[in-house]
């Protein structure tokens, strides 16, 4: 057994020697859970970062195999971006497997994208799983809101500045440009110039924006007439009642005024049952609902069945960047959602 101990010690020394990380000069390596975070990190980090995401755009972020190759990815990461909520419950397994002390929670290389985001559906009482696959901290699909994209970018900026203070000004300039682009794309450049993106975003979040725009004037015209961007396009479906498959569209629907009436899942994470599908069909027929939104990683049989029974339009949408090949940025993603929903309803 003494020989065995020597072998063990030898292997320990060998492992320690082999395991030393070789520092790579140049770009920072940023790994995110969701591809949307990676896309935003690329916007903020520019050419000074190399980004990768674990979840693919057409993959359900709740259920990801914590494969060793992902741990290997994280082992090289300088910055790890996650929602920081109970969406990616597989992430701790990868962090443990990565053996990278820089990206542990609380360390400079760990970013929780949700920090400062006004989360929806935060439980106000004790919860249990009789309510389905509930999220303890609130709805974690906050990346579906363009307004929240700015907050995500702010958190990523903080992370990048922390690990690379020498490029702080560079990152901040890119962050400001990203925020400006989101504001312009969301509200239209003219309205942003008059009111300011921050104030517009704040009013959108607290539900006062439309009243404000309808009552206020500038340059001799109502501000509502100066509204542009995605919100202007979204007027085509503002107030529209919709059914969605899973509770993943709350933030988008809040921003664009869509009213979620029900879900294809009877409870979050519980596959649809025949009884619940019947209830949804009855609701669609009773309320004249025209649209059913489905993340494109969910099964299509049930939405197709509901479509066939009611005439509702089942719209299968990419949920994240990369969900379809041509969607490479968050701008592509929000563009896609607004355009397809508008077109789907126009065709009804």
């Amino acid at each position: 057994m003494g020989r065995m101990l020597k072998i063990l010690c030898g292997m320990l020394a060998l492992g320690l020697g082999l395991g030393v990380r070789v520092a790579v000069a140049g770009q920072l390596f940023v790994v995110s859970t969701l591809p949307d975070y990676a896309a935003i990190a690329q916007e903020v980090g520019g050419e000074r970062v190399e980004v990768a995401s674990i979840v693919r755009g057409n993959e359900n972020p709740h259920f990801v195999l914590p494969k060793p190759s992902y741990a290997r990815l994280l082992q090289r990461a300088d910055l790890f971006i996650t929602s920081g909520l109970d969406l990616e419950l597989w992430a701790p397994t990868l962090i443990d497997g990565a053996r990278n002390a820089r990206i542990l929670e609380g360390e400079p290389g760990y970013v929780a994208a949700s920090y400062g985001v006004a989360l929806l559906e935060v439980p106000t009482r004790a919860v249990d799983r009789s309510a389905g696959d509930i999220h303890l901290y609130g709805n974690p699909h906050f990346h579906t809101s363009p307004i929240n994209a700015k907050k995500i970018a702010e958190n990523i900026l903080a992370g990048l500045q922390r690990i690379d203070p020498g490029s702080s000004a560079y990152y901040e300039a890119r962050y400001r440009r990203f925020v400006s682009r989101i504001d312009s794309a969301m509200f239209g450049p003219e309205l942003v110039r008059i009111v300011g993106g921050e104030k517009l975003s704040e009013m959108l979040l607290n539900g006062t924006l439309m009243d404000y725009l309808r009552t206020q004037e500038a340059d001799g015209a109502k501000l509502i007439d100066k509204l542009g961007g995605w919100l202007r396009e979204g007027f085509a479906f503002r107030g529209e009642k919709v059914i969605v498959y899973h509770k993943s569209w709350e933030y988008f629907c809040r921003d664009f005024g869509l009213v979620i009436v029900d879900y294809v899942e009877p409870k979050p994470g519980i596959p649809p049952t025949a009884k619940h599908v019947k209830e949804v069909v009855d609701e669609i027929q009773a309320l004249g609902i025209r649209l059913l939104l489905v993340d494109n990683y969910y099964e299509r049989n049930t939405p197709r069945e509901i479509e066939a029974r009611t005439g509702v339009k089942a719209l299968f949408l990419p949920h994240m960047v990369g969900g379809e090949p041509e969607i490479r940025t968050v701008f592509d993603l929000y563009d896609c959602w607004v355009r397809r929903i508008r077109d789907a309803l126009a065709a009804r």
Partner: peptide
Amino acid sequence: WLLPRLWAHVNELTLEM
């Protein structure tokens, strides 16, 4: 140990007593 990349995408060595 998560070993440096050898012949596979991930090589990991575990030793226990």
